[in-house]
Write a protein that binds this DNA or RNA. Structure first.
Length: 543
DNA sequence: TGTGTATGCGCC
DNA sequence: AGGGCGCATACACA
């Protein structure tokens, strides 16, 4: 059991210790304290994990448990099962307004000096009371613990980084684009392709980066297109299309994951994206630096484990359909989920003719497809899986009626008026657009319940995996332990000493079972993982 | 010159 | 008239 303490020193400094490490921080009133008598032992309670933890990690302090008050406050304030009045009190308006700490500014002093005088203990007491008074105290408590664990994971992953071979990445860029061009210039490979496009369309001055110019050139060549996106161009029959598509693909690589990206996001052989837990309203993480949400296949060859280490890549097969089966208690769908491929399970049960149809129907139900092949499949499958399809249907109806919906553990969706940025000056809309807006909100609430509960499952999974990985390497030195380096919705990457790779796979699988039990109790839902032990991320088996 | 929006791409 | 995101760029507008 770790011993953590936090104490004021003279001269606006504070001493923090956790385990054997200690650190002196220069800070005024601390928006953090330690909850001593927590069920599992002492727990850090602080305003924002992203404000504190990077400093602690840099000083060699690993935190076992925390409660992130900012995340907790925003979560509880929107939770339908919580009495919001219990969250109101001294300084609470400040917590209402508190935004995330921006990663480019990882300092303990905020421009807004209110932050330094926040009373963490006051806010913590309100949150504990609000949870205790809720009829869903158990689930909310689990959600808060998972959310805070996620915040620890996020900070640890940014600190550790994805092992990144700049030499491989640069060779890849040079092979495809030519040598690095001067700032503002096109690489030679792109310039050559642009030349081919100009010739093919007989447009000598054409700038392929300009949509209007490109559109005009395409039309002059007799092609009927209304936009310039790749999917629209792909179906056209013209000798200029092939080099144009190639140009667009490589131009995107150059601007999104080119040399500038390396300069900005890779340091010390590590790619360090920044994560924002609960950054999206559904509870999924978002990212505000490095582009962690789109880790394109094109550059994955550069993610290579250190010498003597391996990457364990694990993703959940059909996470959201399985979550839907669990939260709706649909025993027929749960039955289909027994096995590695839920869609195939539906085929085997005779519910649907092909795997493709199963996928179309389920995704259509979760996204609110109304027409086309997908919409037709939904109708048929509703009879077969009434509980599962009924749940998303009811969430959509509730949204259209203007009611709020919630995830399984109690995260509330934003209301009808606040789901998207809307201009308050727009005035009263006509009935048609109002109805359109309500249907759009219904599609949002329909997806919210599944995507949000999926995010909760994933949080529990990585929180549990984090703990298991820590124990796994506990007899070795600190820097020889397997650790999470990447997480994206339903997928994790663990960087591990090669000798522990198989054990990591086991722990990832066990953690998935634990997460399932936490969310769905006695209703057994399988969450099989696709796992790969690889040297490079690019070699992970995907489908 | 700067700012906001639209487009297109990438990921789940 | 199928959900959630981030990012880079072009373009329109101030």
């Amino acid at each position: 059991m770790s011993r953590i303490s936090l104490s004021r020193l003279p001269g606006d400094r504070a001493l923090v210790t956790d385990g054997g490490s200690e650190l002196t921080l220069g800070i005024a009133d601390l928006p953090a304290y330690v909850r001593e008598r927590d069920a599992d032992g002492p727990r850090w309670v602080w305003d924002d994990t992203a404000r504190w933890y990077p400093t602690l990690l840099a000083a060699g302090v690993r935190v076992e448990r925390c409660h992130d008050l900012r995340l907790g406050h925003h979560l509880l304030r929107r939770a339908p099962a919580v009495d919001r009045e219990l969250l109101v009190g001294e300084q609470s308006a400040y917590w209402d307004r508190l935004g995330p700490v921006v990663p480019s500014d990882p300092v303990l002093f905020s421009a807004d000096d209110t932050a330094e005088h926040l009373r963490a203990d006051l806010e913590d007491a309100r949150q504990l009371a609000a949870v205790a008074a809720s009829p869903e105290a158990g689930r909310l408590g689990l959600l808060l613990a998972a959310e805070s664990s996620g915040a620890l994971v996020a900070a640890e992953m940014t600190y550790a980084g994805v092992p990144w071979r700049v030499d491989i990445h640069e060779r890849l860029l040079t092979d495809l684009l030519g040598p690095r061009p001067p700032r503002g210039a096109r690489p030679s490979g792109l310039e050559a392709l642009a030349g081919e496009v100009r010739t093919a369309f007989d447009a000598p001055g054409l700038n392929p980066d300009s949509r209007p110019e490109l559109l005009a050139a395409l039309r002059r060549a007799g092609l009927e297109v209304s936009d310039t996106r790749a999917s629209s161009l792909r179906v056209l029959d013209h000798p200029g299309i092939v080099p144009l598509l190639r140009y667009k693909q490589l131009a995107h690589l150059f601007s999104t994951n080119g040399w500038v990206w390396i300069d900005q996001w890779v340091s010390g052989g590590r790619f360090r994206p920044s994560y924002q837990p609960a950054g999206s309203t559904t509870g999924r993480w978002s990212s505000n630096g490095g582009g962690a949400l789109s880790f394109p296949a094109q550059v994955r060859p550069a993610a290579v484990a250190d010498e003597g280490w391996m990457l364990v890549v694990a993703d959940v097969a059909q996470l959201e359909p399985r979550v839907l089966a669990g939260m709706s208690g649909d025993t027929a769908l749960a039955q289909a989920a027994r096995g590695a491929d839920l869609y195939q399970g539906m085929v085997d049960a005779g519910a649907v003719a092909s795997r493709k149809d199963a996928k179309l129907g389920l995704l259509g139900a979760m996204y609110g497809a109304t027409s086309g092949e997908s919409g037709r499949m939904v109708a048929g499958l509703t009879r077969r899986y009434p509980a599962a399809f009924g749940l998303v249907e009811e969430a959509a109806r509730a949204g259209e009626r203007g009611q709020v919906v919630r995830t399984l553990l109690g995260r509330g969706a934003p209301g009808l008026g606040e789901a998207w940025d809307t201009d308050p000056d727009d005035g009263p809309a006509d009935p048609d657009s109002q109805a359109r807006y309500r249907r759009a909100y219904g599609r949002f609430t329909r997806n919210f319940v599944v995507q949000g509960t999926g995010a909760e499952w994933a949080l529990c999974w990585i929180a549990e995996l984090r703990n298991r990985l820590w124990r796994l390497g506990s007899d070795g030195p600190l820097d020889a332990r397997p650790h999470l380096v990447f997480f994206l919705h339903d997928e994790v990457v663990v960087h591990t000493p090669a000798g522990l790779a198989d054990a990591v796979v086991e722990q990832a699988t066990a953690a998935a079972a634990t997460a399932s039990g936490l969310l769905f109790r006695d209703l057994t839902i399988d969450f099989p993982l696709n796992t790969s032990v690889v040297t490079s991320y690019a070699d992970a088996g995907k489908h």
